[in-house]
Design a protein around this nucleic acid. Structure first.
Lengths: 221, 221
DNA sequence: CGAACGGTTCGGGCGGGGCCGTAGCATCGG
DNA sequence: CCGATGCTACGGCCCCGCCCGAACCGTTCG
């Protein structure tokens, strides 16, 4: 059993409060600079630098140098998924949940999960695509589905060629159900943003839904 | 954002090598005594006792006293799920995977995920149930499905009344797909064991499959 | 070219927490 | 009632790793 220590390695990286705050901040999907992450974590820049090195060594995040800045992002959607699942554990047996948090209801309704949609609306999307017959069981796009996605401006051929899995079920922390991740999940979210149906709140994971009605219509026509 | 420190609390609990080994051992689904867990973790009994207290305080495990023994189990399937997802992260970006481990291929083929079936065969079960029309998209049993499950000796009414969710998608570490968890997932695994199609290897998570052909037949008739 | 800024490296301080030895309680057996 | 067994509580040791101050590169301005 060599897996014991290994999951411990990853969990230790996540388990330090400052690092956990950094990772949470990166769940928004956008890359952040080292200084921004330091502020987010509430530590000095030099301390943050050390944490970021560790996270990068552990391959949980990836950094790119751009001018005199260094931008960090999560190294993959699987990391985001792991964080979501941990949040679910916290949520289900979190003891004292001191204050529900002001943004809590909004988070539960619609939020960014790295690069795709999560929350009540994310699950509704997932279920709607299946019910509509645009995704077959096993999360495989049908011919009609592919056509509908193309109509939204998504290049399915392109997505198919990418190394990233096209469709992937991601466990939803607040709903305890799965929503759609993978290349298609990300592409759909981007398309919804383009149409103005969804708008991300800059510094946070919350997503505002001015076009929720339109989105639901699109799913149920 | 109060969630930062909270996920850190959970991750810290998992992040200690000895505790991680204990949790891994409990992934087999059966309750173990404090001494057994101490041995599994490679620490003395007193040290183990301390770890177990912490894990219990954090509600990751639950202990019941029975005579002069104390049996511990994971406190819920969500904990098992979190561990599986962490293993997936390890697997995908685990750098040094020193030795593949002797039981590795067997683990990938069929293993216990707390109380239900995981691995290639677990995913095949999940997909088969959907393809067969016994589960509708969204993991809802159909009428035919319910009948088929009853034929196996599963009391669907009973399951429906339980507080536990009937069906749940659980992310499979080795397959990167979902398999069936929840009350029905557990009940199916138990039924397969009853029929002798599957047999668990006592101290480990590995599952032997003398009746794999029969199981697959059952899915594809 | 020099000042400002983002980022990293080094060193030392310090606290938390893992570990074990010893000892103290319960339960089970004779 | 006494010993063996499973488990827990306490005390002390020690090391890991978090943290910051200060100093050091590289980039970008004016």
């Amino acid at each position: 059993m060599a897996d014991g220590p290994d999951i411990a390695r990853i969990a230790t990286l996540i388990g330090e409060p400052a690092r956990a705050r950094m990772l949470s901040a990166l769940m928004g999907g956008q890359a952040l600079t080292a200084s921004e992450l330091a502020e987010e974590a509430g530590v000095t820049r030099q301390t943050a630098s050390g944490h970021l090195s560790r996270l990068e060594d552990g391959a949980l995040i990836a950094g790119v140098k751009q001018g005199r800045h260094r931008y960090f992002r999560l190294s993959g959607s699987d990391v985001a998924e792991a964080l979501e699942v941990l949040m679910e554990v916290v949520d289900r047996r979190g003891p004292a949940r001191v204050r529900p948090g002001p943004r809590e209801p909004e988070m539960r309704h619609a939020r960014v999960c790295y690069d795709h949609l999560a929350g009540t609306l994310g699950v509704a999307l997932h279920d709607g695509l299946l019910a509509r017959g645009w995704l077959a069981p096993g999360l495989v796009p049908t011919a009609q589905g592919a056509a509908a996605f193309e109509d939204l401006g998504i290049d399915m051929d392109e997505l198919g060629k990418a190394r990233r899995p096209l469709c992937r079920a991601c466990l939803d922390w607040s709903e305890r159900r799965t929503h759609l991740a993978g290349g298609l999940g990300a592409a759909l979210f981007a398309a919804f943003e383009d149409r103005g149906w969804l708008k991300r709140v800059p510094g946070a994971r919350v997503v505002r839904c001015p076009g929720e009605a339109a989105l639901r219509d699109w799913l149920t026509i």
